[in-house]
Design a protein around this nucleic acid. Structure first.
Ligand SMILES: [Zn+2]
Ligand SMILES: [Zn+2]
Ligand SMILES: [Zn+2]
Ligand SMILES: [Zn+2]
Lengths: 153, 153
DNA sequence: GTTATGCTTGATAATGATAATCACTTATGG
DNA sequence: CCATAAGTGATTATCATTATCAAGCATAAC
């Protein structure tokens, strides 16, 4: 079920689409919008291919990242997380809730003016990664509820 | 040689300024603008306190980060890096050169409009971290020099 | 002083994510 | 079929960080 997008990139690298690689890619596509770690992918992959080895998962994730099929990043530390690349050029950014640790994606791209400023100073900007640390609306609401004693009890 | 800034934060946490902690802080102050890993700090600390243990360095860096004396982040992965916090509230951002891996600091803060936009959506933004990946002017110049054959030889 | 209490330290072991190794299997092309 | 290379699973190695633990050193009571 891999799309042309992924197919082309694999062929360009002359890599075979084995069942293991297909399983990993399927998992990533089934979890679009989430950011999975290698062990999470491995756990899910075991349910589809019980004999798959953890090393293959690591190798596949690494390879797909080098082909720019997956984007590799680190939110917390000591652990990489992967997600499907945006097919259309520019990637997105992330808000990480300081309370529930949920990761919300931001599509706004108001960084162009900053990039332009720096290009004028002689840099050639290739990519950027923005992480905003915040409290999400849900958590803020929950906090309000908690501090408002329930009158009915 | 620790400033009032650091002193106050230590006292607030009721922590003693031992010779080991002072050594680590001195190293961080002597390397203002750089981003040191635990082993780099340990190596330098050994020249000042030959008996200092690696565990103490880790503990001290961790403690100083929790007191917001040091800022802890990860540029490459699998390794934390530390730097002194900006005393005046808002922190800075980083440009990482894709060629020489140098880290250049950016003071511009053109992210306010994005933050404002998100606050309107119900988020409470606390902090952000921006990493720009680029080629620095030096590396771009070097590349130009290399591709221009030397006529005089 | 002596003693008790708790913070701090250094050495070392444990942990945990990822990378490397290696023997075995599976395409693929002649 | 045979040769070559790619891919896999199991296992080990690596490396940064954390946990453990006994000893050292304060500070404050006794
Ligand atoms: Zn939240
Ligand atoms: Zn994302
Ligand atoms: Zn450079
Ligand atoms: Zn910095």
């Amino acid at each position: 079920m891999v799309g042309r997008f992924v197919h082309d990139k694999l062929e360009k690298g002359r890599y075979k689409l084995t069942s293991q690689r297909a399983a990993v890619l399927d998992i990533m596509m089934d979890n679009r919008g989430r950011h999975l770690s290698a062990d999470e992918v491995f756990f899910e992959a075991k349910t589809r291919l019980p004999n798959i080895g953890i090393a293959t998962v690591y190798r596949t994730l690494e390879k797909m990242a080098s082909l720019e099929i997956l984007h590799k990043t680190v939110f917390d530390q000591g652990k990489y997380r992967y997600e499907l690349c945006d097919e259309n050029a520019h990637h997105h950014h992330h808000i990480i809730c300081l309370s529930c640790n949920s990761i919300i994606e931001v599509q706004d791209d108001l960084l162009n003016s900053l990039e332009k400023h720096l290009e004028e100073q002689g840099y050639r900007i290739i990519d950027h990664e923005l992480k905003l640390y915040a409290y999400c609306p849900d958590c803020l609401q929950k906090r309000r509820d908690d501090s408002t004693p329930d009158v009915s009890s």
